Amino acid sequence: MSSDTPTLSRLLPHSDEIPPDPAERTLAGLYALPEDPWVRVNMISTVDGAAWGPDGQSASINDAADWRVFRVLRALADVVLVGAGTARQEGYSHLTRPHGLEHLTGAPLELAIVTRSGRVPWSTLDGPHPPLVVTGSAGALEAGAAVGDDRVLVCPDGTADGVDLRAARDALAARGLGQVLCEGGPGLLGDVLAAGLVDELCVTTSPRLAGPGAGRIVAGLAGHELGSGHDLRLGHLLAGPAGTLLARWELV
């Protein structure tokens, strides 16, 4: 673990400190997943609600405290679910377990791309095996050409190019990938909320102001309703030394 890894302070439900630990035993316990399947979302936001910085990427608003928790969440997941647009914008590539945390989960970490069109970001095709692709009927052919038919989860929602995300979650679980870490972006988060699939929402609040321009962490198509039943209960709240807040919210 690098020398600049910060100590985190747990503010709620009780106050203590979580010093740097290469094995991250305490954080792994705090973020342990209660059951399978489980959909956890991890997002970051500035204090004024921006989902990314001036460069259009979330990396420009995170810090070492966020990175510490980010690594643990990936180490505990079976699969990272991300929208194709976010994968392109953020430069996603082949995923591996975070170095030094391989002991938390033995299996390889999978990447699953959600794309209505079936177009797969080229950056995600650079590893030893391609990502899984979640798409509808309209995108199946193009996705299969990119990654192979065995890596495509065709989950039509009955519209021309829509994706049934509930069917996608079940298809991932059928492959032994029941612990889903959704990393957005905002459009996909809006969709999984609307589908009633989110079990918990981990939100880092970066101590920055972005001003107008950047979108919020939840977005959707025009007329797309999130529906009801999105009350939250705070599981815990951590604080980094620079004022970064890391909350684990459970949907009730």
Score class of each variant (00 low, 15 high):
Leu177Val: 07
Glu24Trp: 09
Ser137Arg: 13
Cys202Arg: 04
Asp126Leu: 14
Ser228Gln: 14
Gly139Tyr: 12
Pro20Thr: 11
Ala77Glu: 09
His103Lys: 07
Val133Gly: 08
Glu250Lys: 12
Leu201Glu: 05
Asp164Asn: 12
Leu197Ser: 07
His224Thr: 11
Val180His: 06
Gly148Tyr: 10
Gly29Lys: 10
Val192Ser: 04
Val114Cys: 15
Arg119Lys: 14
Ala174Pro: 05
Arg71Asn: 13
Leu125Gln: 04
Ala75Cys: 10
Met1Tyr: 13
Arg74Thr: 08
Gly100Tyr: 12
Asp66Phe: 02
Val252Asn: 06
Arg208Met: 13
Thr46Pro: 13
Gly118Ile: 03
Val133Pro: 08
Pro54Cys: 03
Arg68Ile: 09
Asp161Cys: 02
Pro6Phe: 09
Asp4Pro: 10
Leu27Gly: 03
Leu172Ser: 13
His99Gly: 14
Pro207Trp: 01
Gly85Lys: 11
Val198Asn: 08
Leu111Cys: 00
Asp126Gly: 07
Gly223Asp: 09
Ala51Asn: 07
Ala160Gln: 13
Arg233Glu: 14
Ala219Ser: 06
Ala138Ser: 11
His224Trp: 09
Gly127Asp: 08
Ile44Trp: 05
Thr86Ile: 04
Glu183Lys: 05
Asp63Glu: 15
Asp157Lys: 04
Leu197Tyr: 03
Asp4Tyr: 01
Leu109Trp: 05
Leu197Val: 03
Val69Thr: 11
Asp16Tyr: 00
Arg88Val: 12
Ala239Cys: 10
Thr26Val: 13
Glu200Gln: 10
Ala107Thr: 03
Asp149Gly: 10
Asn42Cys: 01
Val120Ala: 01
Ile44Tyr: 06
Val218Leu: 04
Gly53His: 03
Glu225Arg: 12
Thr204Glu: 07
Gly85Pro: 13
Val41Lys: 04
Ala171Gly: 06
Pro121Lys: 01
Leu189Tyr: 00
Arg74Ser: 06
Val203Pro: 00
Glu35Thr: 14
Gly106Asn: 09
Ile113Asn: 05
Gly211His: 11
Ala50Gly: 14
Ala239Ile: 05
Asp149Phe: 08
Ser228Asn: 12
Leu245Arg: 04
Val180Met: 13
Val218Gln: 01
Leu237Ala: 11
Leu141Pro: 09
Asp36Thr: 15
Ala210His: 08
Thr96Cys: 04
Pro156Val: 00
Thr135Trp: 00
Ala59Phe: 13
Pro54Asp: 05
Glu142Cys: 14
Thr46Val: 09
Leu101Cys: 10
Val41Ser: 07
